[in-house]
Every structure is written in C-alpha cells, then in structure tokens.
Simulated scan of single mutants.
Amino acid sequence: MLFRRDVLDRVVTGEVELAFRRWREAEVRSGGSVRTAVGIIEFGDVEIVTEQEITAADVRRAGFDSKGELLESLRQGEDRRIHRIGIRFAGTDPRAELRNEAALSPRELDGEAARLIQIDARSKRGPWTRVVLRLIDQNPAVPARELAEALGRELPRFKSDVRRLKEYGLTESLEIGYRLSPRGQQVLAHLNASDPSTPG
C-alpha cells in the first residue's frame, strides 16, 4: 500500500488517520503494517464502505477537503469496493538506525562480510552481493531498470536482491534508484580492502 510523501508527513503528525482505497479484495489487514519513507505505518480497522457511508469526519481524517476530492482520488472499476483503513504512525523504521551505524568495529565488519559471503555461497547463480553493492555505489540515483539491465537481471529479481541488502541496512531507496547507506559504504570499503581483486 503506497502513500504520497505529503500524506505520510501528515500521518506522522496525527493529522491523517484514515486512508481509502478501491480494491477488489482488501490488500492489507488490521494489525498489519508497512515500511515507508517516514517509518512504520500500522493499519487499524479495515472496512468495506459505500460512498454514502463516508462521512464528513472521514473526509477530514483522510486529509481531504471534500468527499468529491476523496472519491476522485480512488481507482475506478465496477468490480472494486471502497475500503476504509485506519492508519497510524508506529515509529521509525529499525533499518534507518541500522543504516546510519557507520562506526563499525573490525569485528563487526568481519561479521558483515561473513554474512554476505554466506549469502553468496548459498546462491545458485554465484556471488552477487558485492557486485550489487559496487554497482549501486558507482551509480546512485540511477533507475533500477537500468541497473538490472547492466547486470543482465530481470527487474523484479534485481529489486529483490536490493531489498535483501536493505534488510541489513546496506542500501537506501531514493525517489529514483538507490544509494549505499553509511553502513553500506563502510562494509563495501572493508570488502574491497580485504579482496580488491574480486570483480564487480
């Protein structure tokens, strides 16, 4: 479930507490959450409603000035039903703190390197982690499709690789493309120093 940045900022302040989507089936569940640019957004009640059941208070809590504006923002389709979703800011993304941990000790750096080596060893297509890190380091803010093409990878699979590195705090998503986090830069420098001859 995607949100515009201006909406996310208003969720953080508590100004926006509801979201409306027109879906065939609910794409989120109550109690679930999603990681966003501002942190974790948690979902409350997820209910199917009609246009008539949307109240003026709902409109305000969703951040719109009028019901017409809200309805215009929804995807159209006769087979789609309107879902009203409670939303709240549930805190910062734990990966954000991890990404900014750049003062790693030699032992910690060795541990990060060992983890990447293990990932590569289990990969059926051969080593890839350092290749992707170097590619992003050399091409920040380049569209993911171009990066995937440079490696001869399908876009969904390339994005999956980057997300895996992101889980370890090594990469950051930008509006377009990616960049290495401070942690990722230090880990890559450690990898290069330990084995600069490795292609990538």
Results as ranks from 00 to 15, higher is better:
D6R: 12
D9C: 06
R10L: 14
G14R: 02
G14H: 09
V16N: 05
F20V: 02
R21M: 02
A26F: 10
R29D: 10
G31H: 04
G31Y: 09
S33R: 14
V34Y: 00
V34D: 02
I40W: 03
F43Y: 12
I48A: 13
T50M: 05
E51T: 13
T55V: 00
A57W: 02
D58A: 04
S66H: 02
E69W: 06
D79V: 02
H83P: 04
I87P: 09
R88E: 14
F89G: 01
D93L: 11
R99V: 02
N100V: 01
N100F: 11
A102Q: 13
L104I: 07
L104K: 12
L104Y: 01
S105N: 08
R107I: 13
L109F: 06
D110A: 15
E112D: 07
A113L: 15
A113M: 05
A114Q: 14
Q118C: 04
Q118D: 13
R122H: 11
R122K: 12
K124V: 14
K124P: 05
R125Y: 07
L133A: 05
I136L: 08
D137E: 13
P140R: 02
A144I: 00
G152I: 08
E154R: 14
D161A: 11
L165T: 03
Y168S: 10
G169W: 07
T171M: 11
L174S: 04
L174M: 09
I176G: 00
I176A: 06
G177A: 07
Y178H: 15
Y178N: 12
G184Q: 00
Q185H: 10
V187Y: 03
L188H: 01
S197E: 05
P199R: 09
